[in-house]
Amino acid sequence: MPSPIPIPPPPSPKQMVLATEDWVEYRTGFPTLVRKFLFRKVPPTGWFHTLGSSLLTVFILQATTGALLAMTYDPSPNGAYESIRYITDVQTLGWLVRGMHKWGASVMVILLFLHMGRTFFYGAYKYPREMTWLTGSLIFISVMGMGLTGYLLVWDERAYWASVVAININGTAPVLGPFISKFLLGGPVIGAQTISRFYALHMLLIPGAIIALIFVHMWLVVKLGVTPWPSRPPEPEPEPAYEPQPQRHVDAPVAVPVTAAAEQREVQEVGGD
């Protein structure tokens, strides 16, 4: 009589979780990435360090409420105002979506100024975080562009005339000014073409640029780590003079391969202060 094949005991819940994680890990590497992101060591941080993540949240909120508005909004001189009224007065919770989008924009601008102030006074834009500040500045300018193009979309008196003045002023710029004005207007006066152009800028072009810039900005923040309050004097110059090492450890959630060429360039930065 053949001996029966032993039936393995059913896996415990813990084993199942581990197996699932292993499945995902082997195929995507995400669990390691998330763990490195979450458990990376950061220097002492406080409440002022929360402004950047608040900006990210508000941006996502703007994108979401904006997408909801776009489902009803009609970007035409005859339809724009009526669709805004419909959203505000008739549509279920339309007023809330529009209100959050409208006031979220102002909150975002305030947060931008506060976050810039925080990084400025902490000296967080200094070596090696110059590119973090630079991408941030470009985000700032783009967000102001969102404010400018979004304002006209309501198509009420105030927005219409403010945009007339803004476009006219733009047209006074030397060389490119008249060209940009013509492009924004899309015709001799503000009309159907203008509203389509502002709409395309407001919901496609500028947000696309902002999303790309936020990705770069966030990558740099995680790679370089945040800056603590500058309470201590900088380290004295190392003695003796630094000898370039072939391999250097970069303490970041995802190690960035430092190529030999980049290493060489970095060493060439060596010099006076």
Partner: peptide
């Protein structure tokens, strides 16, 4: 004197991280 701004920075930032904690 050859000064390496990178080593100096990493020494400083490494010390600051030691005083810190995990992000999560």
């Amino acid at each position: 004197k050859v000064i390496n701004r990178r080593v100096r920075y990493e020494t400083e930032y490494g010390a600051q991280k030691k005083e810190g904690h995990a992000f999560f």
